[in-house]
Design a binder for these strands. Structure first.
Lengths: 228, 228
DNA sequence: GAGAAAACTTGATTCAGGTCAAGGAAGGTT
DNA sequence: AACCTTCCTTGACCTGAATCAAGTTTTCTC
């Protein structure tokens, strides 16, 4: 079997496995595999910029993608981090408006790009895709709501504590969690500076709430973490 | 014509005029009018609380509704303020999960309540409602994204400036904008305290950027407002 | 595996804005 | 119109966290 055929099969399989496109017909699946194409990105490369025309959207195949805003002075706030199988940029495409934020890969990455018009046709003609999108958007609205809550009502230690407990839940509820992004990026996600985050990590270690070994964090005292 | 008939007609008309239910069939419209009912609320009364089972959702007929979170210490962060014709609580109903935040009316209010199960049936069976919801969710995701951006990357004066310019746009681009909510609530929406907001209003007045007369604010210097 | 480049930590300083406290202005109610 | 309540403003104080600076560790890359 020639290489491009194999790639096409992989691609089709990947699309079929994604949450967004579950329940789609086999012919539409083939069509999607036809029109989409894989793009690879180097360390930290930008995917798109805020304000750019949204000519299509992306899905993460490998690596992680951050969606972020920049202040005038260059400070960064990460809105979201997407991993394997997750689509991003669909809001802009669906609305036919420019991207509302920047996107860049963390480390290296491989993405699947879908041109916009085809996607819009698909959503309008395919109730199951619309419902999948509604489910995804609902999740994201909830996440954004808690992010707003944390930024406004919690101090940095509280936000970090929440995030650690969140990671623990994601990672099979173990006491031992592993950071999947650099600490500087975590700071940007929590709406603080690397320096402050570092200090708080240090303080929590001193107080015996966590144990910190590089990217591996042991949650020694869930009680006190939850109390933040 | 008996009173209840007239009310039913009004209700039906109101539902038909809403964005969420545009494109719905006349029979479904009648059904919605049948199952929904009007609720009235006194000054500042709660509509629902975070964590409550979502047995249905609401649409604003009269007044304004705030969706908000509370911190342990009782500080409030308003996530959203909804006005006439806007639905709220649908995310929770659609997901079949508890309400993610609290809701209360500002001043007095009149709401239309829709029981949940019927609504879910409707969304699943009616592509135009699903698409309308997608459009609404997209808008809200954008709004939340800018709210996160502002909370994290702008200081309070910048957030206030943005809000004033936003109000100006909403209110026919006049130089003269009118606050439609108490200043204390505005503070809670911008993620600050009434005291701080008051001080910043005072400073902006001194500097000749705005003129403040009760709830009416004149934007004297758009340039400088945009520069924040 | 050496050298370069990121990423992280720690210290010193500064400041935006939160909190407490108390007085003043509106607005609703009888 | 007088009352009460809610809302708003101003002052004094304090603290969480940003910033600047400099060193240290980790990690890429060749």
């Amino acid at each position: 079997m020639p290489v491009y055929r194999k790639n096409m099969e992989n691609k089709k399989q990947f699309i079929a496995d994604s949450f967004l496109f579950t329940g789609i017909s086999s012919s539409q699946l083939a069509e999607l595999a036809e029109i989409s194409h894989v793009k690879t990105y180097g360390r930290g490369e930008a995917v798109f910029f805020e304000g750019e025309e949204a000519d299509g959207f992306y899905m993460v195949i490998e690596g992680k993608v951050k969606i972020f805003k920049l202040s005038m002075e260059g400070r960064e706030q990460i809105l979201h981090i997407f991993g394997r199988g997750e689509p991003f940029g669909e809001v802009a495409v669906f609305q036919g408006r420019p991207f509302p934020a920047n996107a860049a890969v963390l480390g290296k990455g491989k993405l699947l790009f879908f041109p916009g018009p085809e996607f819009i046709r698909l959503v309008h003609g395919n109730p199951s895709i619309a419902l999948n999108m509604l489910a995804m958007f609902s999740m994201r609205l909830r996440r954004f709501a808690t992010q707003i809550e944390h930024l406004s009502l919690k101090e940095v230690p509280g936000r970090l504590a929440s995030h650690l407990l969140y990671l623990s839940r994601e990672q099979h509820n173990r006491e031992q969690v592993t950071l999947d992004i650099p600490k500087g990026q975590l700071a940007s996600l929590l709406g603080t500076s690397p320096e402050t985050l570092s200090r708080i990590f240090a303080k929590m270690s001193e107080e015996g709430i966590i144990r910190l070994q590089g990217k591996v964090i042991t949650l020694l005292d869930r009680e006190r973490l939850e109390a933040f």
